[in-house]
Amino acid sequence: MKSPEEIFELLKNEFGEAILGLDKETPTEPIISIDSMQIHLVGAFLRDNLELKFDSLMVLSGVDDANGTKTKDEDGADMISGGTLSVYYHLHSTNLKHKITLKVSTQRENPQIESVYNIWRTSDWHEREAFDLFGIIFLNHPDLRRILMPYDWEAGYPLRKDYKNPEFYKGMKVPY
């Protein structure tokens, strides 16, 4: 069983610059921030290292940080430019009984994150969901298409804070 500080030190020694920081001031578990292009390497290390053995990805979830500049368009609807989208990875070691949370942030305008599909197969549908609802592109995911919304949904990504629902979908009125 390793404490978050020990896990952070192990990662820092192995990857250096790719490990961006450890946030302990969270109400839940401490969060380690990782570079978005290195997450698959860090993930493989976390799973295979004999002192860590993070064999289970409990959940992978997307978040719109909404920390860019907020403006109003001509209809008075919110628009956000700049800022970041984030993905959180909640890991658990069923063998060593410890947990850790990883965070990866990416640019809102071109959100790209390396997929961890080859490390934890759980992430297959979770990454598709984050893609579906936030538009985050997971590089090297084998089957990155929408999972919940219709395949031909063209109105954007519904859980982004500046999402605008369309008036019609295939002739069906969408608003109440």
Binding site: P158, M172, P175
Partner: peptide
């Protein structure tokens, strides 16, 4: 889901 259900049809009688 009448207000925030971006994915829900608001009444089957629309179809």
């Amino acid at each position: 889901y009448w207000e925030h259900g971006y994915h829900v049809l608001k009444g089957i009688d629309r179809v």
